[in-house]
Write a protein that binds this DNA or RNA. Structure first.
Length: 213
DNA sequence: CTCCAGGGGGCCA
DNA sequence: TGGCCCCATGGA
């Protein structure tokens, strides 16, 4: 899977998008815990709506794991309501707060065991691969690349990749396969993974105004 | 009015 | 495994 031409292509893509849009400064937040909560709230939800929910949590002064755990679930539902699926997300925010309280400090101390921390995140109801990797990368600065629907859509449509793989094959690739493509063909650098994912999201928002790269 | 956002879980063949 | 449905706000 590691391939020089693919490495070159991904590096070129990164440089192209960075030149086009500049640094995206992800993840916007006042704390790593806020970032983690945002990762839950943004599931299939516009960032605009997530901001409203986060603002509600800030105004209620409960943007810490302990405060959220001690907040009544019905109160939490009202606060996160702008972020859609508020019943599920209120519960998920509580579960993640419990995980954070128990593990966040240890993650910082034992970063080499990141695979185990990732597994423990995936064990949380409501945390799938994308959310787990988002937390690993944007909260803990661990070099994991985040795959989302934008990334798949954009690279399935890529002529460069279609020279190497059938489009049908690209369409059949699952999360882990896409992640492997990026992680084996780019430097294992959290700054690169951070920026590239943000740039891909930005590019997909802008598509229509700009021609594909 | 319709469409769809920075996903994930449950269910069923 | 793979396909489908559910969740359920707010802006364009």
């Amino acid at each position: 899977m590691k391939d020089h031409s693919i490495s070159q292509f991904l590096t070129d893509t990164f440089n192209y998008l960075l030149g086009l849009y500049g640094p995206q400064h992800w993840w916007p937040s006042d704390s790593d815990f806020e970032t983690a909560i945002g990762a839950i709230l943004t599931q299939s939800t516009s960032w605009r709506n997530v901001e409203k929910a986060i603002t509600n949590l800030k105004n209620a002064d409960i943007l810490t794991p302990k405060a959220i755990l001690s907040t009544d679930i019905r109160t939490l539902r009202k606060l996160v309501r702008p972020a859609r699926f508020f019943n599920q997300k209120a519960a998920r925010v509580k579960l993640l707060s419990g995980w954070w309280l128990k593990n966040a400090e240890q993650v910082e101390k034992q970063r080499q065991n990141w695979q185990l921390w990732r597994e423990s995140l995936l064990a949380i109801n409501g945390v799938g691969p994308e959310t787990a990797d988002t937390i690993m990368l944007y909260c803990f600065n661990i070099p994991i690349f985040v795959i989302d629907t934008y990334t798949k859509r954009m690279f399935i449509a890529s002529k460069q990749l279609q020279k190497r793989f059938e489009k049908k094959e690209l369409e059949s690739w699952k999360y882990a396969k896409w992640q492997q493509l990026f992680m084996e063909n780019l430097p294992s650098d959290p700054k690169i993974f951070n920026e590239l994912h943000a740039l891909i999201v930005r590019h997909n928002k802008e598509i229509g105004k700009f021609t594909p790269w």
